[in-house]
Computed example of a mutant assay.
Amino acid sequence: MLLKALLLGAFAGAIGTQASAEAFKLSSSTISEGGKLGLAQVFKGFGCEGGNVSPDLSWSNAPQGTKSFAVTVYDPDAPTGSGWWHWNVVNISPSVSSIKSGASATGTLPAGAAQIKNDYGASAFGGACPPPGEVHRYIFTVYALGVDKLDLPKDASNALAGFMIRANAIDQASITAVYNR
Rank of each mutant, 00 (worst) to 15 (best):
L3S: 14
T176R: 09
Y143K: 10
L8Y: 09
K44Y: 10
P55N: 13
F43G: 00
S32F: 12
W87F: 07
L145F: 03
S95W: 01
N168G: 05
V42S: 14
V89P: 00
C129D: 04
S28I: 03
T106M: 04
L150N: 12
A177Q: 07
P94W: 01
A78K: 02
V135S: 12
A144K: 07
T66E: 03
D56E: 15
T66M: 05
P94L: 04
E134T: 08
Q18C: 13
P130I: 03
I175Y: 06
A10G: 05
F125Y: 14
S101K: 15
F24N: 04
G81Y: 00
T176F: 12
P153H: 11
P79N: 08
T30V: 13
G81V: 03
T72A: 02
N61Y: 12
K25P: 02
W85L: 06
G126P: 10
G107W: 06
L8I: 10
T176W: 09
N158D: 09
G146P: 01
K25V: 08
A128D: 05
A70L: 02
S174D: 03
V178G: 06
A21C: 03
Y179D: 09
T30L: 12
Q41G: 05
S58G: 11
G81W: 01
I15V: 15
F24A: 10
F24C: 08
T66F: 02
Q18W: 13
S174Y: 00
D155Y: 11
G112F: 13
T176I: 07
G133H: 04
P132Y: 08
Y179F: 13
K149S: 15
F24W: 05
V71Q: 01
V89H: 00
A5L: 12
E49M: 15
L2E: 07
T80S: 14
L145H: 03
D56G: 15
G65I: 08
Q18G: 15
D155F: 13
P94G: 02
P110D: 02
K154I: 07
P131V: 04
C129S: 13
T176Y: 12
A114L: 09
S29V: 10
E134C: 04
A114S: 14
K154D: 12
V89T: 06
T30W: 06
K44Q: 14
A156W: 06
Q64I: 08
S82A: 11
D119M: 11
I92E: 00
A21K: 10
V147A: 08
G112W: 12
G81F: 00
T141G: 03
S58M: 08
P132D: 06
R181D: 11
S68Q: 05
G133F: 03
S98G: 06
S82W: 02
G16E: 11
Q115E: 10
P110W: 05
G126I: 07
T30H: 15
V147M: 03
A62L: 14
L37Q: 01
A21R: 10
L2H: 09
Y138M: 03
A111G: 13
N52C: 12
A128N: 09
F69A: 01
F46H: 15
A144T: 04
A105D: 05
A70V: 00
C48S: 15
W59V: 08
A70E: 01
G107Y: 06
V42H: 04
A19G: 05
G126H: 13
G13P: 05
L152C: 14
G121P: 06
G127K: 13
T141H: 02
L150M: 09
A78Y: 00
A10L: 13
V178E: 12
A167V: 07
Y120A: 15
C48F: 11
A10I: 11
